[in-house]
Write a protein that binds this DNA or RNA. Structure first.
Lengths: 225, 225
DNA sequence: GCGGATTATCGAACAGTGTTCTATTGTTTC
DNA sequence: GAAACAATAGAACACTGTTCGATAATCCGC
């Protein structure tokens, strides 16, 4: 059999390679040329399966959200609906910590991203047993998702270039950064001084969980439970 | 006097023109060439004042945040600290609705963006009279800011291209979009069906305010007030 | 088996981007 | 006035997403 002169792709292949590229080297590394090289083919071929870079990212996002959906299937049967919402939110957030590129493209093009709607539905269903108006439910789910995605996007931001230039360990750089805060005038920035120690040793997930619990406490209160 | 053959710039000019360009045509329109044209000069000159596009956006963001800071000066003297936090958050959010480009670059490079730290400080000071640990305060302020920015970024996303292609009025397009949701299977998507009417006529600021109040209710509860 | 139509692959070419570089102009300083 | 310096200007570079036409592989009716 003569060796193939051409590679053969598929939408699954392309999306898979896209996700791998994003996972390994971040969003900046996702170029059509890099993707083509990884697939062993030419640049133009990708456009057969996908009509733009944006669609590429949408499809990758939707695929990952599908997996999140599958993984959170079991988290939704607990007795406390708000607890279930909390569990799903945490799982979502953790996925976005693992994949810093994810947050930026979530909740974008809902016509392609079917699985985002399913997450929305899943969270909303939990609130259907609570004593809330449809409007309150809609607001609550929207806010929770915005919070989850917002914090994840915030925290996914790559460290400033000064970090790479310094060659410091993360903890050392954090210390240096906190010291910069400590150098602020104590009278003008009393709050900064009060929390700078917490800031220096904080864990992103803790902060996220803390805010999520505030949000859910407010929701619980609203539901009169 | 012979006419000048060259334009004369300044950092203030450059940042000003940057903000104007961003306000008028969004982030995509901010190119060095467009900016140079607007300033009436050459591309290279901009690099005399600024070392990258990122710094340009940082400076523009910081400038706008300075104005927000000034405008919220009077919002912070009310008797209820959490009410004050609410007022400042709302003002921030409204600024980000006016300037959809703002959110994406907020809380990025804090070494340049001095005014972002000042906002952080301002919100934090309000919590200093409440019965909370420094860690709780730090978490609370971080979460609130993440929420504000997160929701703003979500809502600042430009409408899908289908909107422009359709030529519909915003309300009409919203109706068409909602109808898409209504077409989903009612058994599989009960929540979607329950809130689709709210979704169709919802106001972004209402949703934001609702979530903010949930968050602040949780905070109030945490402070034992 | 054959031939035409369809599907898919490929890479050169295009327009646009941020950034670098060097020549040039204007201004200051002595 | 002349040398030193501060600013301006735009051509050139490397890189990007996207378009396009040429080509290869496959399929389908005969």
């Amino acid at each position: 059999m003569a060796p193939r002169k051409r590679v053969s792709h598929s939408l699954e292949n392309v999306v898979e390679a896209t996700i791998d590229l994003l996972d390994e080297s971040g969003e900046g590394a996702l170029t059509f040329r890099a993707l083509a090289t990884r697939l062993g083919g030419g640049v133009g071929s990708i456009y057969w399966y996908v009509s733009s870079r944006e669609e590429l990212l949408d499809r990758a996002t939707d695929e990952v959200m599908g997996r999140v959906l599958a993984e959170t299937d079991a988290l939704v049967d607990g007795p406390d609906p708000i607890g279930n919402v909390r569990a799903v939110s945490l799982a979502m957030f953790e996925e976005m910590v693992r994949r810093p590129w994810l947050g930026n493209y979530l909740m974008r093009n809902t016509s392609v991203q079917t699985n985002s709607i399913r997450i929305f539905e899943r969270l909303g269903q939990q609130l259907m047993t609570l004593d809330l108006s449809p409007k309150q439910r809609f607001h609550a789910v929207s806010s929770i998702i915005s919070y989850v995605v917002g914090v994840a996007v915030d925290m996914a931001q790559p460290p400033p270039r000064e970090f790479f230039e310094s060659g410091l360990e993360p903890a050392e750089f954090m210390k240096a950064f906190a010291d910069g805060w400590r150098a602020f005038d104590a009278d003008e920035f009393p709050f900064i001084h009060q929390i700078v120690d917490e800031f220096e040793r904080h864990d992103d997930v803790d902060v996220f969980r803390s805010g999520l619990d505030m949000l859910l406490a407010g929701l619980r209160q609203q539901a009169g439970a």
